[in-house]
Structures are given as C-alpha cells and as structure tokens.
Write a protein that binds this DNA or RNA. Structure first.
Lengths: 225, 225
DNA sequence: TGATTTTCTCTGGTATACAAAAAACCAGAT
DNA sequence: ATCTGGTTTTTTGTATACCAGAGAAAATCA
C-alpha cells in the first residue's frame, strides 16, 4: 500500500430536480392536508418563481412526487396535494402491517443485545406525558424494526408506504387511550424478538398494526370531502 | 335513440409522457437485462427522435421510471437500465412474500366458489409441458391472490414489486424441477384459502415465495458483476 | 331574466434553444 | 509507443417560448 493521498469521490448530486424534489416532499409531508383551509394546489410557475429557477426541473420533481402518490397532476387543470380517502389509508396500513410483520420475523435471531436495548428505549419507555413525543417515538419504534430486519428493500418500501400514511395519521392520531395499549404491545413485541420467536413476533406486529387499521375505519368517518 | 354516429370515449391517456412511460416500461421489462450483449444505455434524444417527439416528455417518463427503480439516471452521463444485484432481487422477493402472504390471509373467508375455481384453473393445472406457459400461469396465480385480497393497495404495491423482480426472474427461471413442487404448493394454498384457514394460507404462501428467495441466493451466483 | 355561446385567462404539455459537464479525440512531446 | 494537455464532441441539465385544453367570466340571444 502506498502513501499517496486518497480523496473521496466528492460528487454531490448537484441537480436541481433532486433538490426540489426533496424540498417539496418535505413540505408536503409537513402540510396539514386534511385541514379545511389548506390550499392543496401547487402551481408549477409559482414554485419555480419562488425558487428562482425554471419550470423544467420543478416539473420533473412533480412527476416523481406523483409517482409516489403524494400529489396528483391533473392535466391542464392543476397539481394538487393528494388527500387520501379513509379506505386508501386503511389499505396502506394493511400493506404496512404485512411488511412490518415480515421485518419482525426476520429480526428474530439476528439482533444483538445492544439493538434490543435500543428498541426498548425507543418503544417501551412511557412518553405519554407528551402526545407528540409519544407519537414520534412510536414512529421510531416501527422504523427500528424495519432496520433490524437487515433487509434494505423491506426498510425502503416500508418507509415509502409510511410516508403516504403519515399525513392522515398525524391529523387523526389524537386519542390518548391508545397510548398505553401501544406501549404494552411494544413490550410484548420486543420480548418476542429478543427471545427469538419469529412466529410470535410476526403475529404481534401484524395484529398491532392491524389494530390501527380497525381504529381508522371505525373512527375516521369524516376524514375528508 | 337517434341515428347519429356514436363515437367511442377514446379518452386514452392523452398526455405523451404517460404513453411514453408505458411504452418504455414495457420495453424495459421485456429486455433481457442480464445478457452480456445488451446495451443498457437509453438515449433520450434517440428515443425522442424515434417516437417523433421532443425530449421533454421523454425525460419526464424517465424520471418516473427512475423513481420506480427500473432505470438509473446518472447526472450528465446517461440513463441506464438497472441491473439488479442478486441481493436486491432476493430482498425484493422477501417483500413480495410479505405482501402475498397478507393477501392470502385476507382472501380467506371472502372468496366465492367461482373465484376459487378460477384460482385452481390458473395455478394448479399442470402446464409443465411448456416452460413459458407454466411461467405465465405462475405469475397469474400470484396476481390472482393479490386480487382476491380485495385490497387495492396490496395489489398495486405487490405488482410494482413484481415488476422489479420480473426481469431477473425471467432470465434465471430455467429450472424445470421447480415446476412440480410449485404446482403442489399451489394446490395446498388453494385448499387453505377455500377452507378458510387464514393462518395456514398465509404461511404456505410465505414459505412458497421464500423458497424462491433461497433458490435465488443459492443458484444465481453469477447473475452479474 | 336566464340560458347559451363566446372569449379570455390560467395551467399544464410540448418543443426548442442554450449551458455545462463528461467523454472522446487528437496532436505534440517525451 | 505512451503520456499529457487541450480541444472537440456528445449528452444531459436548465431555461424559455409557445401550444392546447379546461373553466370562468363576459357577451349575446331568445
């Protein structure tokens, strides 16, 4: 091995469409889509102007967002942030349950003690004093499970789906009675993973998530329109 | 009713970017990606020229395909059809297994006799005389299960994932010994669904699909580099 | 006045022009 | 022959200009 300098590749994707995509995506996810007085329209020209660039890269970012189901481009009418129906959100939760369940199954038997401890710290600790903190921790818990599966695709696709659910979830997750149930569920899940019981872990995660689905269908009658 | 001519709705995706997207997608999926002498490069201008249109809609179609992981757009270098690694394909199969398994679970208890018969016709009938026919039927069988779940998102996402696997699958699925195993698996699956055993159906489908994963990891050592 | 037609504007769709970066090329020097 | 350095070519990224459909507003007519 010689002593010559070893430089990093450097190339930081400088393309605008990429940057715009990320900016818009974040903005959309943070938007309170279901509030009555939110303007769901996105104007290509206005966005381009605001960012001080041309429409072209903006359009490409929008195409991508449309493909991710976050917006809808109605030809010659306008671009709108997508407001998912209850049915769609519920169905997405089902898909999410399928993926998380598999992740939990795979996590069994390949987690280190340290990883289990992280999971406990995130998901079992009672943060119910603060709804937002709890909510955030809840997300992290499920993210962590995806990670522990050591299956990148599972993680990636799981997070994609979650992004589609997130706006609705954030809007309607205001029921504090669900918190305690959730925490005890999490404890059971951690336990199953730790003691290497894939079947049980998978079932617990699935049922835990499907409980959210049932809850959504039951209580979100008036999500939109 | 009057005698004036009655024209068809026609309404067939008027936008070019949509049409191009579909054309390119199909072309890419039919491509033998893993063959040594396949040119993986896609030239924007050439495509635009061939189709007799400008680059703009072509680019938008490409952005979409990139978002679906079917191609890779290297900034200022070119766009290339993506050749998935073994690891990626195997992982995608895992995700697919998760989704199909959930679909089978949901299908239980909500299938009509007619639907079961369709499933039998597609997946259990021995078509092993012809590898291609079998392969096609195999796909249809799994598609049908997604459909029977009556969960649109599950179906949609399942098919998206399948599209990413398909090129590799078609390239490497040449082992006729797998056929018989597959057909008996299918029969078991149909049986479980018909007799309304969700747990069993889900497990069978999962294991059936994960068997493909194992097979891939074991035999496709030399898929690419 | 109310219904219908026309026009006008707004917005996305497409084409084209130009800029910039990468790759290929090509000479001249070693 | 090979290396080096600059130049040309190629290809993508971005900007700009124009087009066409949809919908609203205005004008028109019964």
């Amino acid at each position: 091995m010689d002593a010559s300098i070893n430089l990093e590749p450097l190339r930081q994707t400088f393309t605008l469409k990429e940057r715009i995509y990320q900016v818009l995506r974040e903005a959309i996810l943070e938007m309170d889509v279901y509030s009555k007085n939110t303007d769901l329209r996105l104007d290509e020209r206005k966005i381009a102007q605001q960012l001080g660039i041309s429409r072209t890269p903006v359009r490409e970012a929008l195409v991508r967002l449309e493909n991710e189901n976050l917006i809808e481009i109605k030809s010659r009418i306008g671009v709108f942030v997508k407001k998912r129906s209850i049915e769609e959100v519920a169905e997405l939760v089902v898909v999410w349950a399928a993926i998380e369940s598999m992740a939990a199954r795979l996590a069994c038997g390949q987690v280190s003690q340290k990883e289990v401890e992280e999971l406990v710290l995130i998901g079992v600790k009672d943060s119910s004093e603060n709804q937002d903190v709890y909510s955030e921790a809840n997300i992290m818990f499920h993210r962590k499970i995806l990670e522990l599966s050591k299956c990148n695709m599972l993680k990636k696709i799981g997070e994609d789906i979650f992004a589609q659910i997130e706006p609705a979830r954030r809007h309607a997750m205001r029921d504090p009675t669900r918190t305690e149930q959730s925490i005890s569920d999490h404890a059971e899940i951690v336990n199953a993973i730790q003691s290497n019981k894939p079947e049980k872990a998978a079932n617990l995660v699935r049922e835990h998530t499907l409980r959210l689905e049932k809850y959504i269908r039951k209580t979100w009658k008036n999500l939109d329109t």
